[in-house]
Each structure stands twice: as structure tokens, then as C-alpha cells.
Amino acid sequence: MAVIRTEGLTKHYGRSPALEDLDLEVAQGEVFGYLGPNGSGKTTTIRLLLGLIRPTAGRAQVLGGDAQRDVVAIHRRLAYVPGDTALWPQLTGAETLHLLGAVHGSVDANYRAALVERFELDPSKRVRAYSKGNRQKLALIAALMTRAEVLVLDEPTAGLDPLMEQQFRACVREAQDRGQTVFLSSHVLAEVEALCGRVAILRAGRLVEVGSLDHMRLRAALAVEASFDGPLPDLAGVPGVTAVERAGQTVRCQVTGSIGPLLGRLAEAGATRVVSREPSLEELFLTHYGSGPHAAAPPAGDGR
């Protein structure tokens, strides 16, 4: 059963589209990665799922209810962590946890205490006195302590130190073991790689890719480097080959789909050495983030 389902979900601010015609399904028990460059519409999607903003068109369902109408029923079973948490500066950490727990419903006090311990938070301080990372920890504890069926996380580890990042990952894994569903938007690719089964990639408000990481790797371009003693072969026109570069006695290129035709060509030209490697996760994403495999490099001549 789909825990999160959107159909043609669209949000425009004035005339500028923040999210365009999003169709997405997240199944129960999944840890689903939600990626995309800055301003691509991730937070917009999440705020739509939470009923904080109204869609221009389309609809979103969470746990079988309408994200706009069934707010109370859905939110009883959901917890959310924003990337930049705004909490009441005059309350202490403990008071905040008490309030948010009571508002949510029942909270297991022992589990809450365990989380506070785990994230090494001093709950006696006022929120105003917390550092950014500590505020983020407070928001994480407030969400995790509910053991909600669905965790919606928008850059939840922004500002956490590496040790806390590890704790966070452990918590997400435990959540998954308990059968909780996690919707995770993040810019930390290592985090996504470690946690997520499936990911969706958004660009300029549109879904450009969705699938399992393994599957995406398989479909992604392979980087191939071949060395020659004699003259270099002309690889233009070989099916699936792009981004050909020549340097001395070696040729580099990328190939998608079947590698057969390329290997044939290289063998024919008397290649002395052929090396190929899978793209890193980073390369994989950068392909989708920018307009091409090298789009992430700063444009030449930008003198600032």
C-alpha cells in the first residue's frame, strides 16, 4: 500500500512554478530519498504533504487520507523535521519536548529520555541558548520520540556533527526495522546512499528520475578509458558513446546502454589497456542536477 501518493501535484507562486505535475508513490516501510538542487521544489512538496500550503492543482494523499483535509488524522501518525527549525526561544528544551509530545498524543517518556541521552542534548537550556545543531537535535528528538508511522524529514541533519549524523542514521535504520516509512530530503549524498532504497530526483520543479539506487547505477553512463600504441580510433558514431576526450595515447569516453559496440571498436583499433568504472553516486546525481555531466563545474570566465 502506498503511504504517500501524489497525483499531478502542482504548486505555483504567482506565475513561477515551484512544483509541476508531480506523480509519486512511496510504499510502506520504504526509506525514500528526495533529491534535487536548491530551489528545485523539495520543501514545497513536503509542505504540500503536510497541508501547510495549498496545491495549485493535483492532490496528495498520506496514509490514505487527503493531505489538506484530513490533517488531524494524518498528523497523529506522522512526524516531521524541518531543516531550519523555528521553536519558541523562551521555552527550555525539556518544556518544548513536553509540549510537543503532549500535543502529538502519547509519548513514551523512557524512549524520549533515551533519545535525549543518545543525541547528547542538555534539555535544561532555553531554546534561545541552543546552537543551531542543538536546536536541530531537539527537533529530531521531538519527531523520533513519537514513533510515528511516517517520518517526513527535510534536510534533518543540517548542522549536525559527524557523530550525531551517525546517531541519526542508526535511528533511521531502527525506524525502518520497526516498519516506519521515511521520506528523506537531503543534500548529503552519503547519507542518502547509506539509508535510501529508492530515490527521486527533482529539477526545477519536475521529477526527472525515480527508482532504486542500484537500478539507476545500472542505467547510468559507464566511464571508459582506453590506451593505444598506435593511432587513436575515431569513436564518434559508435552507439551509446558520449563525451569523448583524447589525451596523448589515451581516449576517455562515457557509454550508456550496451558496451558491446564500443569494445568491438576498441579491440579493432588495437587497444593495449581498457579501464572502466561505475560512476560515483556524486557523478550520478550531478548528471541529473545540472544540464550535463560537467554542469557542476563553474562556468569559465566567471571572475568573481
Binding site: W88, Q90, L91, T92, A94, H98, L99, A102, V103
Partner: peptide, 23 residues
Amino acid sequence: SARGATRQRVRGLTSPVGLAARL
């Protein structure tokens, strides 16, 4: 400036209206 560690006052802080009263 605000004081650092302080007394915890959770009484009444259990609902939106309780929070509103506190604020």
C-alpha cells in the same frame, strides 16, 4: 540577556492554548 539554565515549568504546557497562555 536571557538566563541560561532555568527552572522547568511544564504545568499547563500540554496544548496549543496552554502554549498561547504561556507566551
